[in-house]
Amino acid sequence: MGRFIEGRGRAQGILLPEQLDDYVTESNPVRVVDVFVDELDLDKMGFDGVNPAETGRPAYHPSVLLKIYIYGYLNRIQSSRRLEREVQRNVELM
């Protein structure tokens, strides 16, 4: 993903005592959303920003933002401000 802001890996162990993946069950819907969005060809679907610009601050990859949006839709979170709070506190979204 080249010039995009990269998050920490899910296998990292410095944020919480254990790995983040350990806190999300195998049957959690966020795992399905993760795999589903990773399989999409966002460039063919017309998403802007899939190919990053060479200048300016790196953006978040559109697939990450789409995963957050789908999570909000599944959990009836319509406000972007509420989604932002969920991303900061909810281990499923980290």
Rank of each mutant, 00 (worst) to 15 (best):
residue 43 D to G: 12
residue 14 I to F: 13
residue 63 S to W: 12
residue 43 D to Y: 14
residue 44 K to S: 10
residue 85 R to T: 09
residue 76 R to M: 02
residue 48 D to P: 02
residue 38 D to E: 13
residue 28 N to A: 11
residue 38 D to L: 05
residue 50 V to F: 03
residue 29 P to Y: 10
residue 56 G to L: 01
residue 52 P to V: 00
residue 83 L to F: 06
residue 80 S to W: 14
residue 9 G to N: 15
residue 37 V to E: 07
residue 81 R to T: 11
residue 43 D to P: 05
residue 10 R to L: 14
residue 69 Y to K: 15
residue 30 V to M: 07
residue 64 V to T: 13
residue 84 E to N: 04
residue 22 D to A: 10
residue 16 L to D: 07
residue 51 N to R: 15
residue 78 Q to H: 09
residue 35 V to H: 13
residue 56 G to A: 03
residue 70 I to V: 10
residue 50 V to W: 03
residue 73 Y to C: 13
residue 40 L to G: 12
residue 69 Y to C: 10
residue 37 V to F: 09
residue 38 D to K: 13
residue 55 T to N: 13
residue 80 S to T: 14
residue 62 P to C: 09
residue 78 Q to T: 06
residue 18 E to K: 08
residue 27 S to W: 05
residue 29 P to V: 06
residue 31 R to Q: 03
residue 84 E to R: 08
residue 25 T to L: 02
residue 67 K to Q: 09
residue 67 K to W: 02
residue 47 F to W: 08
residue 44 K to H: 05
residue 50 V to M: 04
residue 36 F to M: 14
residue 59 A to P: 00
residue 51 N to Y: 10
residue 21 D to V: 03
residue 41 D to K: 07
residue 35 V to P: 02
residue 64 V to P: 05
residue 66 L to D: 14
residue 47 F to G: 04
residue 16 L to H: 10
residue 34 D to K: 11
residue 19 Q to W: 00
residue 85 R to G: 04
residue 22 D to M: 08
residue 21 D to Y: 06
residue 21 D to A: 02
residue 83 L to Y: 04
residue 10 R to H: 14
residue 79 S to Q: 10
residue 82 R to D: 11
residue 56 G to H: 04
residue 84 E to W: 06
residue 39 E to H: 09
residue 57 R to A: 11
residue 56 G to C: 02
residue 56 G to Y: 07
residue 61 H to T: 00
residue 46 G to D: 04
residue 60 Y to E: 08
residue 75 N to W: 10
residue 18 E to G: 00
residue 63 S to N: 12
residue 77 I to H: 00
residue 36 F to V: 13
residue 46 G to C: 01
residue 86 E to I: 02
residue 40 L to W: 15
residue 86 E to G: 06
residue 85 R to K: 14
residue 31 R to G: 03
residue 80 S to H: 12
residue 23 Y to C: 04
residue 64 V to I: 15
residue 72 G to T: 01
residue 86 E to K: 12
residue 36 F to G: 11
residue 64 V to R: 14
residue 47 F to H: 07
residue 47 F to M: 05
residue 38 D to W: 06
residue 71 Y to E: 02
residue 78 Q to W: 09
residue 20 L to C: 11
residue 13 G to C: 04
residue 74 L to E: 06
residue 67 K to T: 05
residue 48 D to W: 00
residue 53 A to N: 12
residue 42 L to I: 06
residue 33 V to H: 07
residue 14 I to Y: 13
residue 60 Y to T: 07
residue 40 L to Q: 15
residue 11 A to T: 09
residue 54 E to M: 14
residue 23 Y to M: 03
residue 86 E to Q: 13
residue 9 G to C: 13
residue 29 P to E: 09
residue 44 K to N: 04
residue 86 E to R: 12
residue 75 N to M: 11
residue 18 E to R: 07
residue 57 R to N: 10
residue 80 S to I: 11
residue 73 Y to Q: 15
residue 67 K to S: 08
residue 50 V to H: 02
residue 38 D to I: 03
residue 41 D to L: 06
residue 17 P to R: 15
residue 80 S to G: 11
residue 42 L to K: 07
residue 40 L to A: 12
residue 52 P to G: 01
residue 68 I to P: 01
residue 67 K to H: 04
